[in-house]
Design a protein around this nucleic acid. Structure first.
Length: 471
DNA sequence: TGAAATGTTGGGGCG
DNA sequence: ACGCCCCAACATTTC
């Protein structure tokens, strides 16, 4: 039995399968010490939001359970990661630490600084990459620049070699015999008091086993219809793997490998949007807070806390928008088609700064991911790479009628409108008084009047855009 | 991964 | 029979 002890630092890779760092550690034959460090996030600009913290808590519970099945357990520490790891190494006699890098600019030490810090403490460090399929170094334009448009980026990804085979989970993990102290998960305070996560709990089960189950269920039953069904928010047409991918409960290589074998081209393409988002943020780390197109720095955004509040709480009077915002609040997730519509409504109808929307999504989404969130909001607002031109303004009524023609999605999330006919479900203010009465709807009391006149808001948004063009 | 405004075409009603 | 109007239906342009 080789002497020494290897620490595996878990970060955004909360899984046993296809985990290069864990795989390496187990293959050394040494004892393996799995550790998670909670870095009290007060000063980090994009620290985890409420929904993310709940997910993280549950995911760590699941990871610990999986490790215990292999004979190990998860050690939890908190504070500065470099310090926490060095301390743990000193306590246990570990000589090596290994991890899978994350790509996000977390506003703290970079991995390189961390490596130096640990090496100074006499610990050898090994770093793998597994959070993304393609490296920013490999996917570049002919001039060596980052792609700013998705389709050529996607073509470049497809021209790369298919990703590696997923690594198996270690058969057994030998946990050190020395005593190791650990914080308890509950002490980290990831679940706020009072706990308002019942709705989220009812819908989501974080953890690697569920991620694996969901991937395979998706590939067996839904991937064939994915191309069209993914646009319909009332049905389960998408994979719903976003949060699992964000926390690394399933690796993108595993997803790619299985989807590739089925020729699921449209799904692979969506997986590469995640890659694209991460590449953009890697090359333009300021994009999380600032528009990529600099002229948007002088965009005449509105200020209106009442309107922002109405949007957040699903009380805009536009049923498709409100349904989406209520789905988000109730479940920590919102269908992608609806994300485009709700985001367009905030930025273009209400003319509120896209960063306000990005913040709200960040707090409420279980899949909050800085790359995806930034790309999505800048895409909608028109200030990002490969963004929708500003004049593409979604009509919330037409979008509802197109993608929720029978109003099933609206009725699910806005039960007070359940009795309104298909014809008026997306525009209740146009329904005849008799119909509303029969449906038990009193506009302005049981359900709001529209807080804005869309056609006028559209014109206002277009002139705001025009003001950008004349300097 | 829009939507509205504007332009064009062609069939049918009708004097 | 013919021209005229109307207006869907579709296409193109513009924001």
């Amino acid at each position: 039995m080789p002497a020494g002890l290897v620490m595996v630092w878990f970060r955004s890779d909360l899984r046993l399968n296809d985990n290069p760092a864990l795989h390496f550690a187990a293959s050394t034959g040494k004892s393996v010490l799995p550790v998670f460090v909670w870095n009290a996030p007060r000063e980090i600009p994009w620290a985890q939001g409420r929904a993310s913290k709940w997910w993280l808590h549950e995911s760590l519970v699941s990871l610990d359970a999986s490790l215990r099945q292999k004979g190990a357990r998860l050690v939890i520490r908190d504070g500065n990661p470099g310090l926490a790891l060095a301390t743990l190494a000193a306590e246990t006699g570990a000589d090596t630490v290994v991890w899978n890098s994350t790509r996000e600019p977390d506003g703290r030490e970079t991995d390189a600084e961390l490596e130096r810090q640990l090496r100074r403490a006499g610990i050898s460090v090994k770093v793998y990459r597994s959070a993304f399929l393609f490296s920013p170094d490999n996917i570049r334009t002919r001039e060596g620049k980052p792609f700013l448009v998705f389709t050529p980026f996607w073509n470049a990804c497809r021209a790369e070699k298919p990703s590696r085979e997923p690594l198996p989970a270690p058969a057994r993990i030998r946990f050190p015999e020395v005593p190791v102290s650990s914080r308890s998960l509950d002490e980290l305070g990831l679940i706020p008091a009072p706990d308002r996560t019942e709705g989220i709990r009812a819908v989501w089960k974080p953890g690697e086993p569920t991620a694996q189950k969901m991937l395979h269920e998706f590939l067996v039953t839904r991937v064939d219809a994915y191309k069209t069904d993914r646009e319909i928010p009332s049905i389960r047409g998408t994979s719903r793997l976003s949060a699992y991918l964000h926390f690394g409960e399933i690796s993108p290589h595993t997803v790619w490998h299985h989807a590739f074998a089925l020729n699921a081209e449209h799904f692979l393409r969506q997986l590469c949007w995640r890659e694209f988002a991460s590449h953009l943020l890697f090359h333009f780390p300021h994009a999380a807070d600032h528009p990529l197109k600099t002229e948007y720095n002088r965009f005449p955004w509105n200020e209106d806390t009442a309107a922002l509040r109405a949007w957040q709480t699903g009380a805009t009077g536009f049923p498709f928008v409100d349904a989406g915002m209520r789905e988000l609040w109730a479940t920590g997730w919102q269908h992608n088609r609806v994300r485009m519509v709700t985001a367009s409504f905030l930025t273009k109808d209400l003319l509120l700064n896209w960063t306000l929307g990005a913040r709200w999504f960040w707090e409420t989404l279980v899949d909050a991911d800085l790359g995806n969130n930034t790309l999505g909001w800048q895409w909608v607002a028109g200030c990002g790479a490969d963004a929708a031109p500003y004049y593409r303004i979604f009509n919330p009524v037409l979008q509802g009628e197109k993608f929720d023609p029978k109003g099933e999605y609206v009725r699910r999330w806005i039960p007070e409108l359940a009795g309104v006919s298909d014809r008026f479900i997306h525009r209740p203010w146009e329904a005849p008084a008799g119909e509303l009465r029969a449906a038990g709807v009193r506009l302005g009391s049981t359900y709001p009047f529209p807080i804005i006149h869309h056609e006028e808001a559209r014109k206002r948004a277009l002139s705001a855009y025009a003001s950008l063009r004349r300097p």
